[in-house]
Design a protein around this nucleic acid. Structure first.
Lengths: 210, 210
DNA sequence: TCTTTACAGTAACAAGGGTTACAGAAGGCT
DNA sequence: AGCCTTCTGTAACCCTTGTTACTGTAAAGA
């Protein structure tokens, strides 16, 4: 685990901090599709992403979902950060987008490191900033873009995150992520295919010209 | 200014920090409608809100606007925080919603206080958390609510922020804030009036049953 | 007072996207 | 092969929202 920590975080954290993380953190594996945090959970550990990708979802009272953004290696979940610090319930759901490896850190340590290590403080601030920026981007997307543009952006993001221009996903799953209906997605996907931007197969979509 | 700082922040910051703020901060006044931060600005000072209210807007490339949220006394702008720390341009516009009094703090001090005062650190973290929560709320609103619900929520929020159930605003201004057209707003407002939820006058709207 | 301008009301129409319904195709299982 | 389930394609329809156009009215200014 020490080596993996160094690979993913060595250029951010000083050696002493890496060692501390190594000694108190517990390594966890989450298979693709596995739930990591559920809405309403009290969060007692903070995840540092070592490998893989996580998708962060929002849900309203009716159970309608919306994809907020993806996290990658080197990221942490600022929503979780804020839950830990504020001792509040999680406002979001986190699901493994790919097979994922992460280090869980007890929240007591967070407080401690915040005053002890400047690099940790900087990391926490940078995470907050990154997440605010992501949220702004999400707002731009849903406020200013039409569904066809949102769909294309979704496909591109998903291809990038999974490092594969062929995405394994059903139309129904896309509809959930974008908070619309399957029929709408099928309609728009067909249009994108006619425009030569994607190729449709059953259970997968190839994104052209990435 | 010292007294005002104590009134607004005395229960958060220790006395020594209040004194430091008092000695390096400069008091500023912004009249209602006055611009405080523009998109693309490099932010060299961080505002602490003493009195009044500020509205935070987002804009896309076409110049279309969208209201993100309001700030009140005791708040600071976490977007600005993150701009300061990251030395990046502002992603948002800040406009005085009412006559506003604020204390501007040079960013160098922020760094310094972050390691020096726990109360400052806690304040910064709490601000980030508050802003993330606001952003989530904004996303819920635009993703899950219809325009009539968004409009009603807007009117209620605005009445609360201005501490007055009579709102001075034109239909066109509401349309800008909600990123829609004047005709749509007039239509929905009329419906709300027929439902007895508001009363319409020229240049102002009375929100009933608050 | 007369004119101008900003604001508000409303109708008619267009477009985007959500809903329902049904049919066909692919793959898995026995 | 035959059956079943899941996924996809498509048509028809409706509702919400956006657009255009025109009218009336209040306030402000000359």
């Amino acid at each position: 685990m020490l080596q993996e920590l160094k690979d993913a975080y060595g250029f951010i954290f000083e050696d002493k901090l890496i060692e501390e993380i190594n000694s108190v953190g517990q390594l966890q594996f989450k298979a693709k599709g596995e739930k990591i945090i559920e809405i309403g959970d009290y969060v007692k550990m903070m995840p540092l992403l070592i490998e893989g990708a996580i998708k962060i979802m929002r849900e309203d009272k009716e159970g309608d979902e919306l994809l907020l953004y993806f996290l990658e290696r080197g990221d942490t979940c600022a929503m979780t950060l804020s839950c830990c610090l504020g001792q509040t319930k999680s406002e979001i759901r986190a699901v493994a987008e790919r097979d994922t490896k992460l280090v869980m850190i007890p929240i007591e340590k967070m407080e401690e490191w915040t005053s002890k290590y400047k690099s940790w403080r900087d990391f926490v601030f940078a995470s907050y900033q990154a997440r605010l920026t992501e949220m702004l981007d999400t707002i731009d997307t849903i406020a200013f873009m039409n569904m066809d543009e949102r769909l294309m952006k979704y496909l591109e993001d998903k291809a990038k995150i999974n490092q594969n221009e062929v995405i394994s996903v059903t139309h129904q799953q896309i509809a959930y992520d974008l908070h619309t209906s399957r029929v709408v997605i099928s309609r728009l996907l067909k249009k994108l295919e006619l425009d030569g931007k994607i190729k449709l197969q059953r259970n997968s979509i190839e994104v052209m010209a990435l």
